[in-house]
Deep mutational scan, measured.
Amino acid sequence: EETYEVDGEEQLKKVEKMLRDRNLDVEVEIHNGKFVIRAK
């Protein structure tokens, strides 16, 4: 499992696309105004 923490939606979209391109399962949560992306 990998976890990424990003600020802002633009970064979120980039990271999310990169992970989905690797066929990973992606979950996004918001913690303290930051996006936390978990990939399995």
Rank of each mutant, 00 (worst) to 15 (best):
R22M: 11
K13N: 06
E9G: 05
E10R: 03
E2P: 04
K34A: 08
D25W: 13
E1D: 12
F35R: 14
Y4Q: 02
E16R: 06
E27H: 12
G33S: 00
F35K: 14
I37D: 13
Y4K: 03
A39D: 03
I30C: 15
E5V: 14
L12Y: 07
L19Q: 01
K14P: 01
V15H: 02
K17H: 06
E5N: 06
G33M: 00
R38V: 12
V6A: 10
R22T: 04
G8K: 05
E16P: 01
R38L: 08
K17E: 08
I37G: 09
D7H: 10
K13D: 04
V28F: 05
E10V: 09
E10K: 04
V26S: 02
E29F: 12
E29I: 13
A39W: 08
R20G: 03
N32E: 11
L12W: 09
I37W: 00
G33T: 00
F35L: 15
M18D: 05
V15S: 02
G33E: 01
M18S: 06
R22A: 07
E29Q: 08
R20T: 04
V15G: 01
A39F: 09
M18C: 15
E29P: 00
V28A: 01
L12F: 08
K40E: 03
E5L: 12
F35P: 15
G33R: 00
E9I: 14
K40V: 12
E29N: 07
D7K: 05
A39N: 01
Q11K: 05
V6Y: 03
D21I: 03
V6E: 01
V28R: 01
E1G: 11
V15W: 08
K34V: 07
D21R: 02
Y4P: 03
E29D: 05
L24Q: 04
E9T: 07
R20S: 05
L12E: 01
T3I: 14
N32T: 00
A39P: 02
L24V: 08
K17A: 10
D25G: 08
E16K: 11
D21K: 03
G33C: 14
K34M: 05
E29M: 11
R20K: 11
E9N: 06
M18T: 04
K14G: 03
K40I: 13
G8L: 09
F35D: 14
Q11T: 10
E29H: 10
A39I: 15
K34F: 04
N23T: 03
V26N: 00
D21Y: 02
K34S: 11
E2V: 11
R38N: 10
N32K: 05
E2Y: 12
L12A: 14
A39T: 12
T3A: 06
G33H: 07
I37H: 03
E16H: 04
F35V: 15
E16Q: 07
I30R: 10
D7A: 07
E10S: 07
E10F: 03
V36C: 14
Q11G: 09
F35W: 10
G8W: 13
E10Q: 08
N32W: 00
E27A: 09
L24P: 02
K40C: 14
E16M: 15
F35C: 15
Q11F: 13
D25L: 13
H31N: 08
E9H: 09
D21L: 06
G8V: 08
G8C: 15
T3L: 12
R20Q: 06
E5K: 05
N32M: 02
E2W: 14
L19Y: 03
E10P: 02
N32R: 00
I30A: 09
D21H: 04
K40L: 10
G33A: 00
V26Q: 01
E2N: 05
H31V: 15
M18Y: 05
E1H: 11
N32H: 02
D25F: 13
T3W: 15
K17Q: 11
E9Y: 14
R20L: 09
R22I: 05
G8I: 08
R38K: 15
V15M: 11
E9S: 05
E1R: 06
A39M: 10
E5D: 05
K40A: 05
E5S: 06
G33V: 00
E1L: 12
K14Q: 11
K34I: 12
K34H: 14
V28T: 02
K13E: 08
R38D: 11
V15A: 02
G8Q: 07
E1A: 09
K14R: 10
Y4F: 10
T3M: 12
E5H: 11
K17Y: 00
A39G: 09
L12H: 03
E2G: 06
E29L: 10
R20A: 07
K14L: 13
K14D: 07
Y4A: 02
E16I: 15
G33F: 00
I30P: 03
L24S: 02
K34D: 14
T3C: 15
R38I: 13
D21V: 04
L24G: 01
R22G: 04
V36A: 01
K14W: 13
N32D: 12
N23I: 01
K40F: 08
V26W: 15
H31F: 10
E5P: 03
I37N: 04
N23W: 12
I30T: 08
V6H: 02
V28Y: 07
V36M: 04
K34L: 01
E10N: 06
N23V: 04
G8D: 15
E2D: 07
G33Q: 00
N23Y: 10
R22S: 04
R38C: 14
V36W: 02
K17P: 01
E5R: 05
E29Y: 12
D25Y: 12
T3H: 10
E2F: 12
Q11P: 03
I37E: 13
L19F: 08
L24H: 07
D21P: 00
K34Y: 09
K13G: 07
N23H: 12
K34N: 08
M18F: 07
H31M: 12
E2M: 12
K14M: 13
V6Q: 01
K40M: 09
R38W: 03
K13S: 07
Q11A: 12
E9W: 15
K34R: 13
L19V: 02
K13H: 10
V36S: 00
R20H: 07
E16Y: 11
I30S: 09
H31L: 13
I30V: 10
G33I: 00
I30Q: 09
Q11Y: 07
F35Q: 14
G8E: 06
K17V: 05
N23E: 07
H31R: 13
Q11R: 04
H31K: 13
N23F: 11
L24E: 02
K40Y: 06
H31W: 09
E16V: 15
V28P: 00
E27V: 14
E1Y: 13
Y4S: 01
I37Y: 00
K40S: 12
N23Q: 07
G8A: 06
R20D: 03
R22F: 09
V15P: 01
V15Q: 01
K14V: 12
V36R: 08
E16G: 02
E5G: 04
L19W: 00
K13R: 12
E5I: 14
V15F: 09
E10A: 08
Y4H: 03
V6N: 02
D25V: 14
V26D: 01
E9P: 10
E1W: 15
V26F: 15
N23D: 07
D7I: 12
E27R: 09
V6D: 02
V28N: 01
V28E: 00
K34Q: 09
E27M: 11
N32S: 00
D7W: 14
E27I: 14
K13L: 08
L24N: 02
R22P: 01
R22E: 04
R38A: 09
D21W: 03
L19K: 00
E16A: 07
G8N: 15
L19R: 00
Y4E: 02
M18W: 11
G33W: 00
T3D: 03
R20N: 05
K13T: 05
V15R: 01
K40N: 08
G8F: 10
N32I: 00
E16D: 03
E2I: 13
V6K: 04
I30F: 13
V26C: 15
L19E: 04
L19H: 01
M18K: 05
V26M: 10
V6L: 09
A39E: 04
L12R: 10
N32L: 01
Q11S: 10
A39C: 15
K17T: 03
K40Q: 08
H31E: 08
D25R: 11
G33D: 08
N23G: 15
E9D: 09
E16W: 06
D25S: 12
K17N: 06
V6F: 05
